[in-house]
Design a protein around this nucleic acid. Structure first.
Lengths: 124, 124
DNA sequence: TTTATTATTGCAACACAGTCGCAATAATAT
DNA sequence: ATATTATTGCGACTGTGTTGCAATAATAAA
């Protein structure tokens, strides 16, 4: 199953590259210079996820937000950093701070989703 | 706006008390001995939230899970603990470990949602 | 106990996120 | 230029959570 270079994927990727915070599918759609179907955006993003190009955060509003991976290798992701969503401007940022998980004995972690909501510095 | 003691609220509350992990609205509905409308369950839970009786976690599946507050005062909540959802049995547990938030300068936190998914000890 | 007040409920309808099947399209290989 | 098949758009669908409204029921007052 090879991946093909299409206008949609290119556009979505460059949108993500142009932004230094995480985006919901809707935010992405609005920023695209071409019209792309909702379902397609989700499919592209899910492909990016599989390929380790982006990571995903779930916010308290139940929505998915996507952001480019910074220093991830295909099989060595470290997305155990905190995220922050501003209740005013709605931006979801990746925070530098890492989450140090210490699970009880016998528990194994597969995924971490850590999000703090509040007011960001520029909205204060 | 006083609160009234109804069969629904009593049932939902005791369901939460009987369980040592967080429940989705559906899990609650299934555990009730009486039939309660979906909307009512949500309304009751949201009232509980307002009153500081329960706290809510959002999981990676986008669903809300509710659990009784343990040592919370009405105006002094500390829900900055981690949660864990098992990918096998689906249980969402509150972990003892607290999250120590250290936000960048100028940021203020209002809410924390920290969830780790994986496999729990009993499902391993 | 009866009556009045109003919080709560059930129902239906809704908004929204995310997914999926399918036929049409377009990117790559031949 | 042609064949292959990944990708797309469309529509339909599932599920979560919310809301308006009239009916019900819990409490207070008489």
């Amino acid at each position: 199953m090879e991946r093909r270079k299409t206008q949609s994927t290119e556009e979505i990727l460059s949108t993500l590259k142009d932004t230094d915070f995480a985006l919901s599918h809707k935010m992405i759609q609005q920023r695209l210079s071409i019209e792309v179907d909702r379902a397609t955006i989700y499919r592209v993003l899910n492909r990016f996820l599989e390929d380790g190009i982006v990571h995903r955060v779930i916010s308290e509003n139940g929505k998915q937000y996507f952001a480019l991976c910074e220093d991830c290798e295909r099989n060595d992701h470290h997305h155990n950093h905190f995220h922050f969503r501003c209740n005013k401007c709605g931006k979801v940022e990746c925070l530098a701070r890492e989450v140090d998980i210490q699970l009880p004995a016998g528990y194994t972690a597969e995924n971490i989703n850590s999000l703090v909501t509040g007011i960001c510095a520029s909205c204060r």
